[in-house]
Design a protein around this nucleic acid. Structure first.
Length: 558
RNA sequence: UGCCCGAUAGUAUAAUGGUAGUACGACAGAUUUUGGUUCUGUUUGUCUUGGUUCGAAUCCAGGUCGGGCAACCA
């Protein structure tokens, strides 16, 4: 009940308003949307916004969503991308009603072009690309029509057929819609609708050597599928008159296009072209590098589908350009993982601690909760011994007042174990601290503490004889600039050289021995982690999904 | 200098002619066997100038600023 109320109270975005009005007026009985990626790259978080929007709309209003590959350009497209896109959409948690391809409609599209020619609304043009660009004019000066526009219907029909039959080389001829060379909208100045490409298509093979342009495929594909609300990004606004013109002239189902602002995230780039460059030039290890804003990168990093959906829900849908703060994405994943991740202890930068009053060779099995946020989460066993590792950074010889950790003479609690006191600092010749000699307070055992002592800090630790050596990979933002592409020079000049920090000598508590790829962990006081696919028999490798909020780091900056 | 979009706290996003609200962030405090979580509080906003109106973030006009448009890409 309260759930329904909450739903009602949440305000609608402008597309939902349009849909509700269309449903209320009877313009549509139900809705159909589509997600139309071009299979020429991997999906990124910006696509996730579009996916969540399109599928979310259909879910909310009881409609359906098609997955349609916009594969009209065989030279850049590949089945590798088709497969990755399908995997990513499914992983995000969405099911498409139909899997379609623009290439499914090539025959129909060809017929549409013929119809336009027959109506005297399209012609074959032999001009070179340069000439066409010349004649097109500029946004402030009108274009001019050339002599080819005067060809007869019969001649155009014959030429188009010959183009289709492979009589001409690439670029020799194009088909253009005859609209208005003086239109203030450049897209209406006799746009090219078909071009010759003797290229192998990932689905239709060598059947075609003429391929429709985006503008001549997208709207018609929407129409063929009876898409009621065709949602795309802002840069297609000037295409809308053309979208409508084709539908009107072809007298087919009137789909309508609506535009929203694409997602931008700060400290990253979000164009397939730039992401491809990062991959090709080896600035990252691949499309699924955990630093990439791709769906596959986020997945490998440890982001959950729910957290990404939540993020897309929170950023909203509007028409103004925006740059979302990554801190919101991080908030979403922390919120999800805090409730579900298993707590474990891992020391990244070990400092040996010897408990001088603890018997040599003794092993005490302690228990620690798997997740304090989950009352049913249970506990795990943690062995305690005389020799332990703690974090180097958790000890300071000369500690400031606000340092709540270990220092000579000071006491801290070891999580789920005992309170210890530091009695002696052991150093090597260079003065580096190599070991701490401490004593433990036997009455301070976690869960049955009768010591009456109050300490300010609690540290994570591992028993040296039980510690598992592992590798952890810490990630930071890929770029130093908030908006790398708007900065002076090349966006790659702003790559963060320290975006990857590998620690090979980390030590994990033994409960981590049974780690699986689906499990998410919180390494206490360190952040959220998940197993990386590079893990092998040689050892476990963990990716840091996101840090914990760190009030101490903030304090230090002051 | 043509056409098209847009402008509400630091960042996003509501308010659909009637009290400018929410989230994230930031800051302060409480709780805490994670300097996590949780809780409480604080801070900051309608681009501008006119007009319509009892009343304007909202409607109208002018301006300013930002973005997009001249691929045989999508």
């Amino acid at each position: 009940m309260s759930e329904i109320k909450k739903e009602e109270e949440k305000s609608l975005n402008f597309i939902e308003e349009i849909i509700e009005a269309d449903l209320a007026s009877g313009k549509h009985k139900s809705i159909i949307t589509r997600f139309p990626p071009e299979p020429n790259g991997y999906l990124h978080i910006g696509h996730a916004k579009s996916i969540c929007l399109n599928f979310g709309l259909a879910n909310k209003y009881g409609g359906k969503t098609n997955l349609r590959f916009d594969d009209t350009n065989p030279v850049t497209e590949d089945t590798e991308y088709v497969d990755s896109i399908k995997e990513d959409v499914q992983w995000l948690g969405f099911e498409w009603a139909n899997e379609f391809y623009a290439s499914d409609y090539f025959d129909q599209l060809y017929t549409f072009a013929v119809k336009l020619i027959e109506k005297g609304l399209a012609y074959v043009d032999d001009s070179t690309p340069d000439e066409i660009a010349q004649q097109k004019g500029t946004p402030t000066t009108p274009g001019v029509r050339n002599e080819y526009a005067g060809r007869s219907v019969e001649e155009n029909l014959k030429l188009f057929e010959e183009m289709r039959d492979g009589k001409y080389p690439d670029g020799a001829k194009v088909v253009r819609a005859k609209i208005d060379m003086t239109s203030p909208n450049m897209h209406m100045r006799d746009p090219i609708i078909y071009r010759i490409k003797h290229a192998h298509h990932h689905r239709t093979g060598d059947k075609w050597c003429v391929y429709p342009m985006y503008d001549f495929a997208h709207g018609q594909s929407d129409s063929i599928e009876n898409i009621t609300h065709s949602v795309c990004t802002l840069e297609f606004i000037p295409h809308r008159p053309l979208y409508n013109w084709f539908i009107e002239q072809l007298e087919i189902y009137p789909s309508h296009q609506y535009e929203f602002a694409r997602l931008n995230l700060n400290y990253t780039v979000m164009s397939k072209r730039k992401l491809l460059q990062l991959v090709n030039e080896k600035h990252v290890s691949g499309w699924d590098d955990p630093r990439m804003p791709t769906i596959s990168g986020l997945r490998r990093r440890g982001y959950t589908p729910a957290s990404i959906r939540d993020f897309c829900d929170r950023i909203g849908i509007a028409k103004r350009e925006n740059i979302i703060d990554v801190s919101l994405l991080e908030f979403c994943i922390r919120e999800d993982l805090n409730k579900t991740a298993l707590r474990r202890m891992v020391v990244f930068d070990p400092l040996k601690v010897t408990i001088t009053n603890y018997p040599e060779g003794e092993v005490e099995v302690l228990h620690s909760e798997n997740n304090p946020e989950d009352p049913n989460g249970g506990v795990r066993e943690v062995p305690f011994t005389r020799e332990l590792y703690i974090e180097q950074e958790d000890f300071m010889e000369e500690a400031p007042k606000k340092f709540f950790r270990l220092a000579p003479g000071k006491m801290v609690r070891l999580k789920s174990a005992y309170i210890i006191q530091c009695n002696e600092v052991v150093k090597d010749e260079t003065g580096k601290v190599t070991e701490l000699k401490c004593t433990y307070i036997p009455e301070s055992k976690s869960g049955s503490d009768t010591s009456g002592l109050k300490v300010q800090g609690t540290l994570h630790w591992v028993s040296i004889p039980h510690a598992i050596n592992c590798e952890v990979r810490l990630y930071d933002r890929l770029f130093n600039a908030e908006d790398p592409q708007s900065e002076e020079g090349d966006f790659k000049d702003y790559i963060n050289k320290d975006s990857l920090h590998v620690i090979k000598g980390a030590y994990a508590e033994p409960a981590l021995k049974n780690t699986t790829f689906d499990e998410r962990y919180q390494f206490l006081r360190k952040g959220y982690f998940t197993l990386d696919k590079d893990t092998s028999a040689e050892g476990m490798i963990f990716n840091r999904t996101v840090t914990l909020k760190d009030a101490w780091a903030k304090e230090q900056k002051k």
